[in-house]
C-alpha cells in the first residue's frame, strides 16, 4: 500500500518523460522528412575551417579534464551524503553535526593536497 502511493506520485513524471522525448524526437524526424536532403561528400565532411581534417578526433586530450571529473565525483558523493544529513540534523543533534565535520575535515585535507599539487591549476 505504502509503495503504491509513493509510486503513483511519480506516474506524471514518467508520462512527462515519454511525452517530452516523443515531442523532441518528432521534431527531428519531422524536419528530416519535410526538408529536402541533398547530401554531398564535401558538405558532410568534418568542419575544420575549410580544409580536410588532418586526423581522426579520437585521440589524446588534456588529462586535466579527466582530473576535474574525478574531483567532481568525490565532491558530488559528499553532497549526496549532505542531503540526508541536512534533513535529519534536528534529530541527530550535536553528535551528528560533529560526525559530519570529521568527514568534511578528512575531505578538506584531501582537497588542500590537490590544491597544493596543482591539480586545480589551468595555466
Amino acid at each position: 500500500m505504502f509503495n503504491e502511493t509513493i509510486l503513483i506520485e511519480y506516474l506524471p513524471i514518467l508520462i512527462f518523460i515519454v511525452l517530452a522525448l516523443g515531442i523532441s524526437g518528432a521534431a527531428v524526424i519531422g524536419s528530416l522528412l519535410v526538408a529536402k536532403q541533398k547530401p554531398d561528400p564535401d558538405k558532410n565532411a568534418a568542419y575544420e575551417c575549410g580544409f580536410d581534417a588532418f586526423s581522426d578526433t579520437r585521440g589524446k586530450f588534456d588529462v586535466r579534464f579527466y582530473l576535474v571529473t574525478l574531483l567532481f565525483i568525490i565532491f558530488d558523493l559528499e553532497i549526496a551524503f549532505l542531503f540526508p544529513w541536512a534533513i535529519s540534523l534536528k534529530d541527530i543533534g550535536m553528535f551528528g553535526f560533529w560526525s559530519m565535520m570529521a568527514f568534511l575535515g578528512v575531505l578538506t585535507v584531501g582537497f588542500i593536497y590537490e590544491w597544493k599539487k596543482g591539480a586545480l591549476d589551468w595555466e
Binding site: V28, A35, Q37, P39
Partner: peptide, 9 residues
C-alpha cells in the same frame, strides 16, 4: 524546421 539536416559522414 525546413532546413536540411546535415549528418557528417
Amino acid at each position: 524546421f525546413s532546413k536540411e539536416t546535415i549528418i557528417p559522414s
